[in-house]
Amino acid sequence: MYAFELHHAKSVADAAALLAKTGGKALAGGQSLVAAMKLRLAQPGHVVDLSGVAELKGIRREGDHVTIGAMTRHAEVASSDVVKGAIPALAALAEGIGDRQVRNMGTLGGALANNDPAADWPAGVLGLGATVVTNKRKIAADDFFKGMYETALGADEIIVSVSFPVPKKAAYAKFPNPASRFALVGVLVAQTGSGVRVAVTGAASAVFRCKPIEDALAKSWTAAAAKAVKVSATDLNSDLHGSPAYRAHLVSVMAARAVDAAR
């Protein structure tokens, strides 16, 4: 790890000012950032620790939305009665991230800002049509994820919370890499107030919505309808774990499993 200067932010405004002044990186739970810094894949000259910012924490139900603070840990989401009651799919998604130790440190906001192409949270946020609330604006999920490790966030923009509309039904099904537990393919299906949404992570360079399966499920909300869709392998990832065709097949299979599990 290269040397860096550490700053402890006391508030969101303080953190934003520090990021603007130093050009540094925000540290949430650090489960990706610290690992990347150890490998010198990330070399920030300044790191702004957000762990002392109280306004970034907490889970609350607000009418037909559940709002989760950016610094809320995966384990806290997984065990939250509010989340389990309103959107059980989200609690299950959080419970399936990495391993216990990772879930005890990693945060919702950190995972979204990092936007790993195989991370689980992007599928949850895009699939439910959530809104990412930053210190500057509100960003619809459809506009937030821009590409591999790339988001709509500006340099001194900090995710404050994410507001999830409570769906009629939803579930997340993941085919995990057996070693890392990152998604080889993960699919979140949801019946929302604005129609059926299907978000896929792990399969391509970034999370995306699968229109053919959305259309099929809008006509017939059944596992068979999802499974019958032949997903295009064009632009899907290829690595030692799976070919594009294998991943394309998995998208339909995991969507079908998610439909079966949806409640």
Binding site: Y2, A3, F4, G23, G24, K25, A36, R40, L41, A42, Q43, P44, G45, H46, G147, M148, Y149, E150, T151, A155, S205
Partner: peptide, 13 residues
């Protein structure tokens, strides 16, 4: 592939 978006600042020792 798009460039990695993790900000790179000058490493210092």
């Amino acid at each position: 592939e798009p460039a990695r978006r993790i900000r790179i600042t000058h490493p210092k020792e």
